[in-house]
């Protein structure tokens, strides 16, 4: 019997994204050289919403890309092959400030894979990480720069971000 706790509703997610958008602009002093890259799948939707907010605040268009990390996973032999999604970064990364966006940060291994993927494509000036939820249990020395909410969890719990037509509607803590 699983128990779900709603830890973020639609309005809460929207507020957190608005705050993160402001924080990104504050930290980077505007939009110069800024690009957003979302991790498939989930992070790409959040990256698009952050881009919309930044455009709204600053009135400047900024490039948006997505990265698929399947080819960079470290567990191909142990868990079998997964479907490979498309990486779409239709702009040069050299000299850019990349905001990497994911929904939940857990062990940090996904982010490690995404960093490798981005560095294979170009040489950015810097990479900053924005996540909606930080649930702890890091296995690598990686930390997010922008966090929607810190949620302490047990290892056997799960954080699920629910989307409806690419719009985040709810974040739940699922106890198994």
């Amino acid at each position: 019997m699983s128990q779900d706790t709603v830890i973020f509703d639609q309005a809460g997610i929207a507020r957190a994204l608005t705050r993160i958008a402001h924080e990104i602009l504050e930290k980077n002093k505007g939009t110069e050289d800024l690009v957003l890259v979302g991790i498939r799948s989930g992070g790409d939707h959040l990256a698009r919403l952050l881009r919309d907010r930044i455009v709204e605040i600053e009135g400047v268009e900024i490039p948006l890309g997505t990265v698929d990390i399947t080819m960079y996973r470290d567990d191909i032999s142990s868990r079998g092959t997964l479907p490979v999604g498309k990486t779409e970064i239709p702009f040069a990364l050299d000299g850019k400030k990349i905001i990497l966006v994911d929904e939940v940060i857990f062990t940090g291994r996904t982010i490690r894979a995404a960093l490798d993927a981005l560095i294979d494509i170009g040489r950015p000036d810097c990479i900053q990480l924005a996540v909606l939820i930080d649930r702890g249990h890091r296995e690598l020395p990686i930390r997010p720069d922008f966090v929607g909410r810190n949620v302490p969890t047990a290892r056997d719990e799960d954080i699920c971000v629910f989307f409806d037509h690419a719009q985040p509607i709810e974040v739940r803590l699922v106890k198994s």
Binding site: R73, I76, K86, A117, D120, I121
Partner: peptide
Amino acid sequence: EQLLNTAESMREINNREIKKVPTL
């Protein structure tokens, strides 16, 4: 269908400047 979908994703690697991923 899965092989064809994966192949479509692989094409992006072949169009990069550095045509290599660490998968295998």
